[in-house]
Design a protein around this nucleic acid. Structure first.
Lengths: 313, 313
DNA sequence: GAATCTGATAACTTCCGGTTATGGATGTCG
DNA sequence: CGACATCCATAACCGGAAGTTATCAGATTC
């Protein structure tokens, strides 16, 4: 039907001026140009948009409706273009972020908060996914950024380590405690663990760390949230293996103990699609993640109040 | 900024095909034309809308947003044009109708119902106004159609009589009743009347009819609705003067009596602005009013069940 | 390296939408 | 009542935006 925004602008200007000469001025065209445009538009609409009489131009119903809704359409289209322009500058748009159980506890919330502040026009979509799921989703461009567990070998992706996460032992503070206590010494204790359905890779990793130490844990309880696991440990129901940054939650009645075992490593990296390296939003987000890379978690733990003294009783 | 609907169409087509050649086909233009259009548009947006690689065209965030909201805008604009076209054919739009207390009772509801059925796209705006208010509003084009009391002398308007309404006497059925009873014989009765605030012209008219008969009514009660007036009459609280078509409501316990007095006339006409004679909606509505002009109210009353026998006790 | 796919570029053309000049209908005013 | 003013329509003309066809160039496949 070939009605263009310029036509709507013409009708709107005319609806406001009700005068071809003045409306034409406002549109920065000559009066005959406006007349011709309107006449052509009237042909497409199939009837007059205005009745012209000497010193008395007024809208018909067709013209009134076109002007009324045209005004709205013009505003909308202008806003759309502006939005697209902001997106081109990396100030608007959508950023889909995958993350796993370990990254959520650490610095991610902080980074998200700061990114949202500095990019208020950007929608952040967060999806809780395992590392293999993230790799697939990144490759398929279903997410833009991932927080994956190393090692990752996929040459479609760019991967940059950001956090030296590890598994640590969590023990209730009523348990016997001394500097020498290790994973082997709690082999016989009841074991609490995150549910496998919640994070298969974490679950399997914890089991394999036990296996490397030479025992199979006696699992008495699974929980869907890390916070629940820690509460159960704090209540003295058993021991657990958790990501080191869980200590940042300062769960009452829980002590943490580093594992020397190399298998306890759980290094986190930020990853994105190779082709997305020039996408402004991805660049900006990754910059922010790497700039915000926290001081080593070990140091942060040392600076935190000692959890040991915060018993439940 | 000069982004046109054709540009949005191009982006939308490209977003769906993700292939310049096929998208160009869909738009019925050659591939270079589409490429040029997009390149130009990218200049206005200030960044790429698509990344082109061999056999792999995909949208950027700017492009995705433009296509997504563009789709919506295109639908809207198409609907707007369609609406305007229907308005040009008299199938859509707005019709503002003024009416007074007398016309609302008669055939107006019926006409409105039928008009709404035959013109489902037309919004009817009804405004309750006195005849002088209607004349002003019609002249100022604040309403499109009026139902006014004759005579009207205003050469800006076209006026066509549609209804020979009159005032009739309403008496409670318990009152003494015989064929000879007239307005003069109830001069001493308590008088109920529509509130002057509700319809000054009707009130004044009723008073002047009494004056012409040679008495001033002893008003004991005013009411804002005709229905209330009739209920009070039916309950035996007094007599009243009402428009003849009020009898069509068949209020219980009320009898009606024609007045021979010429001053009791209250002729209703449909009126519109002289310049609006060619407006499709006005034409159609007036046609329908005049075609639907009811058989004389007198005859309709005769056909109705006798109200006399429907007493309250 | 030949063939194919696909978007970009170049050269040319068409015609839409602009311009200026003027006409003609309808008021106003001396 | 005739001269003048207002204001939209029409006519004639013009330039450039956007289309066309032909061709190029990079990527990939075999």
């Amino acid at each position: 039907m070939d009605v263009e925004l310029a036509d709507l602008e013409a009708v709107v200007a005319l609806a406001e001026a009700l005068h071809f000469g003045r409306a034409a001025d406002r549109l920065h065209v000559s009066q005959p140009a406006l007349s011709k445009r309107i006449r052509k538009l009237e042909g497409r609409i199939g009837g007059p948009l205005l009745v012209r009489r000497y010193r008395d131009v007024r809208l018909t119903e067709a013209g009134r409706l076109l002007a009324e809704r045209g005004r709205h359409l013009l505003r909308e289209s202008e806003a759309t273009v502006a939005l697209s322009q902001r997106a081109a500058r990396g100030e608007a748009g959508r950023l889909r972020i995958g993350f796993g159980i370990a990254s959520i506890l650490g610095f991610l919330p902080d980074v998200l908060l700061r990114f949202r502040r500095s990019h208020p026009g950007v929608q952040l979509h967060l999806r809780d996914m395992s590392t293999p799921e993230q790799i697939e989703a990144l490759a398929a461009r279903e997410v833009d950024i991932g927080f994956v567990r190393l090692p990752v070998a996929d040459d479609r992706l760019v991967v940059r380590p950001v956090l030296d996460e590890r598994l640590v032992l969590a023990i209730g503070s009523r348990s016997p405690w001394n500097a020498r206590i290790g994973l082997r010494s709690v082999a016989a204790e009841p074991f609490i663990i995150i549910a496998r359905a919640r994070s298969a890779s974490f679950y399997d990793h914890a089991i394999s760390v036990c296996a490397a130490t030479g025992f199979a844990p006696r699992i008495v309880q699974e929980a869907n949230e890390l916070f629940t696991v820690l509460s159960l440990v704090g209540a003295g129901l058993g021991v657990s293996l958790v990501p080191r940054s869980a200590a940042l939650m300062h769960p009452p009645g829980v002590r943490f103990r580093e594992l020397t075992l190399p298998q306890a490593a759980w290094d986190i990296a930020v990853a994105w699609h190779r082709d997305a390296s020039t996408v402004p939003l991805v660049q900006r987000f990754v910059e922010m993640v790497r700039a915000a890379r926290p001081p080593s978690v070990k140091r942060r733990l040392a600076a935190a109040p000692r959890t040991r003294s915060v018993g439940t009783r």
